[in-house]
Design a protein around this nucleic acid. Sequence first.
DNA 1: AGCCCATCCTGTCCGC
DNA 2: TGCGGACAGGATGGGC
Length: 274
Amino acid sequence: MPELPEVETIVRGLSPLLKGKKVRDFFFLSSHLWFRQPSSLKPDDYRAKVIRSIRRRGKMVIFEFEEGLGLLVHLKMTGQLYLAEKHLPVDKHTHARMTFSDFNRELRFRDVRKFGFLSCLQLKEIEKKLNSELGPEPLQIDFPVFRRLLQRHGQKRIKGWLLDQKILAGIGNIYSDEILFGAGFHPERKAASLSELEAKRLFRVMKKVLKRAIELKGSSVSDYVDSQGEKGGYQREHQVYDREGELCRRCRKATIRRQRICGRSSFYCPKCQV
DNA sequence: AGCCCATCCTGTCCGC
DNA sequence: TGCGGACAGGATGGGC
């Protein structure tokens, strides 16, 4: 599932290649993608527009075109956004394509489970939506703000706290489990139960895990590939995620437990995480 | 405020 | 070897 490190990797891959390129054609291949998402613009409106920038906010990708046009993309669990040679055939899971007049590859949106979306909106509308739906970026936040957020939502369990996009934007099921293992906290600990020192540890580990995952171009579980169709490498460093029944890599005594917490499969070491 | 559940969707896996 | 059912999960919305 593309979370912050995966989406960051995609954006870093797309940005240098697509910045300044002019759209030739943009079209949806699946009607569900068009009808399920509110849009104020039509795909045809993007014709001949130049891409000014591509950026990430939380788990979302934002394309900025000239004249205030924007495109908001969320990959949810199985979405893919990548560049492909135009002549390569599209399969039934490819739902949108964008071609360029000055680039020999095309941008494709593919999503097996159809949870992801593209939203054709003005940049101003996108900004408004992001500001109302997302909390701050985990890699930009400073410790005092982080601590305040822990206290403000203190009754939440720490796993649900990390997963809540309104509190912090970009962390999903894989990284919440890896961060909690790294910091040594049981996923059901209440956010407000962390002492100042413990909060600092969580803060530090959160940044370390996310940065390392970006270095390795994300975790390839499920369908994740980057903008060039390549897999990431961070899954090789997973300590707990999807390791149920395996030996804990830290204590070498307990085995990793899997438990449904906050509506998600949660993996943790019962000995190392308290 | 926060928890739980259902919903969207389809490929995969398990048991018979 | 095949079939049916359970399961996975990001975000949302409803009910408690």
